[in-house]
Every structure is written in structure tokens, then in C-alpha cells.
């Protein structure tokens, strides 16, 4: 009896300690990045072009590129991920083929992102001949993000109570109509949370983009909204260096005198955006859940 109580107490203490360690590591890391970087960040830093030689460059293009590639990645990933998730949760039979697909998804999820980047280089950049481009980058990131998205959607659909599905079927709804009118709306808060969380993941990814979206950005004219011209920021066939690639590049091969400042400032912006994604996923997800199930 005494021993069991002791074991219980020890477990509580040890587990609390581990939880505390996680919190401490995260706060230390964030604190370090933010305190170093936040002094560099001002409106001018966010809205001026980066410079190759002189000090005082900003991250305007890189910041735009990161969001723009994210947008295209999500346009590819969301429909594919939904389709895959619906298939795995609702249509896949419990057999070997399904087991095989599951292994494929899991393997894809655990591939190092630099390998995906090389794959993107070979297939999208070289084989199709599109060169370093936003499209090649977004397609590579789609492969990077797809397994997570499929699993998010599958789990969200599986978490809907079976009675709701039966309720739809019992009213004469077909399987497909039951999915679109009952299952997807019920699963929507969790799917949305998953999407926003993976936005953070995609936004911060660098390795997969080095050789797909490239490490340079052409001179951009933010007044030009015609996506078919080469200096338009909307052109998806142009190379695009994202913020996290920029941080890596400035740090490893930059020759500007203020490279530490630019890297620190860029990191602070990157981390802040990802934090916003994560926090808004929580807040928005629970708000939506409350709204849909509210009393």
C-alpha cells in the first residue's frame, strides 16, 4: 500500500517535471530568438528589399514569398488531403491495399525534407523544365504536407460519432451526401485546426525549398499585378527565396556586414508568424467548436 502510494507520487512528480522542462525549453528558445531579433524588426525592415552587399537590407520580398508559396501549397494540399482523408476514413476497406497505402503515407511523412527537396529538383524543376519557381516549391511542399493533411482529415472524420453518420443514412441520404452534409461539417473544426497548424509547419520549412523554389528572387515590382510578367510578385513561374531560406542563406554564405542582425530579425519574424498560426489554430478551433455545438 505504502509502495503503491510512493510510486504514484513519484510518477506525478516525474511527469510534472518533464512537462515543466518542455515549457522551459520552449520559453527559453522563444525568448532568446525574440529578444535578439525584435530590436531589428521595424516597419522599414519588413517593407524594404534585401540587400546583397550593403547593410540595412530588409525582408519584404522574402516575407511575401513565404506567404505566397504557403497559399499555393494550401490550394494543392487541402483538396488532396481532404480527398485522401475521406477515402481513408470512409471508403478504404480493411484489407492489404489499405494497409499498404497507410505504410506509404507514414513513410512519406517521415521522409527528411531535404530528400523531398531533391525530389522536387529532379521532377518539378528539371524534368518538367519549369526551373526554380514558386510552383515547383509549392508542389514540393504539397508532398511534404500531404501525409499530415490526410491524417488530420481522416482522424477528424473518424472522431465524428457513428450515430451521426447512421442518422444521415437512416434518413435516406446516400453515403456521399452523408459525408458532405453530416460528417464534414461535424469534422470541420478539427480539420481547420489541422490546416492552420500545418500552415505554420509549411511556413517555416526551408530544406525542401532550397532546390525547388530556389535561393534568389528576381527584382519585384509590387505595383505590377499581372501574374504573367516576370517582375510581378504574383508570377508563379519565378524563383522565390522564402524567409526561412533567406535566414539560412544569410547565415551561411551572406557577405553583408549586418548579417547577424538580418538573420536575427528574420528569425524573430518567422517565429512570430508561426506562433500566430499556432495560437489562432487553438483559439479559432475552440471558438468554432463552441459555436457549432453551443447551447
Amino acid at each position: 500500500m505504502q509502495r503503491r502510494k510512493l510510486a504514484d507520487k513519484t510518477a506525478t512528480v516525474v511527469l510534472t517535471m518533464f512537462a515543466a522542462i518542455i515549457v522551459i525549453i520552449l520559453t527559453a528558445l522563444l525568448g532568446y530568438v525574440l529578444t535578439l531579433g525584435i530590436q531589428q524588426v521595424n516597419w522599414d525592415f519588413l517593407t524594404s528589399k534585401s540587400s546583397s552587399f550593403r547593410a540595412g537590407g530588409g525582408i519584404q520580398d522574402q516575407l511575401f514569398n513565404s506567404f505566397y508559396i504557403l497559399l499555393w501549397t494550401m490550394m494543392f494540399t487541402i483538396p488532396l488531403g481532404l480527398a485522401g482523408g475521406i477515402y481513408m476514413a470512409e471508403y478504404a476497406k480493411d484489407n492489404r491495399i489499405t494497409a499498404f497505402i497507410r505504410v506509404c503515407i507514414e513513410t512519406l511523412a517521415s521522409l527528411p525534407s531535404i530528400v523531398l527537396g531533391m525530389f522536387g529538383l529532379l521532377i518539378f524543376v528539371n524534368a518538367t523544365g519549369m526551373g526554380y519557381s514558386i510552383l515547383a516549391g509549392a508542389l514540393t511542399l504539397t508532398i511534404f504536407n500531404l501525409p499530415i493533411m490526410i491524417r488530420t482529415c481522416e482522424n477528424a472524420l473518424r472522431a465524428v460519432p457513428l450515430e451521426l453518420k447512421e442518422g444521415g443514412l437512416a434518413l435516406g441520404y446516400t453515403h456521399w451526401r452523408t459525408i458532405t452534409t453530416v460528417l464534414l461539417p461535424s469534422a470541420f473544426p478539427s480539420i481547420l485546426t489541422g490546416i492552420i497548424l500545418s500552415c505554420g509547419l509549411v511556413f517555416g520549412e526551408a530544406a525542401a525549398l532550397l532546390y525547388s523554389a530556389g535561393m534568389t528572387t528576381p527584382k519585384l515590382d509590387f505595383g505590377n499585378w499581372n501574374p504573367f510578367t516576370s517582375d510581378s510578385p504574383l508570377n508563379i513561374m519565378r524563383p522565390a527565396e522564402t524567409l526561412s531560406v533567406h535566414i539560412w542563406k544569410v547565415n551561411s554564405e551572406g557577405i553583408i556586414p549586418d548579417l547577424r542582425d538580418v538573420a536575427d530579425g528574420g528569425a524573430a519574424v518567422l517565429v512570430t508568424v508561426i506562433l500566430i498560426f499556432n495560437i489562432s489554430a487553438r483559439v479559432f478551433g475552440s471558438w468554432l467548436h463552441k459555436k457549432l455545438t453551443a447551447k
Binding site: P161, E163, L164, E166, G167, G168, L169, A170, L171, G172, T174, V182, P185, S186, L292, T293
Partner: peptide, 20 residues
């Protein structure tokens, strides 16, 4: 099934209205 289930309604063990 559409015709059948229009004419034959079903009520389940757990009351589970749609979240609407």
C-alpha cells in the same frame, strides 16, 4: 434505399441530433 428510408424511419439508442 432512398425510397425505403423515407417510408421507414429509424431512431437510435443514443439521442444524437446533428450539430445544427
Amino acid at each position: 434505399p432512398l425510397e425505403l428510408r423515407q417510408k421507414v424511419g429509424m431512431v437510435f439508442q443514443k439521442p444524437k441530433p446533428f450539430p445544427k
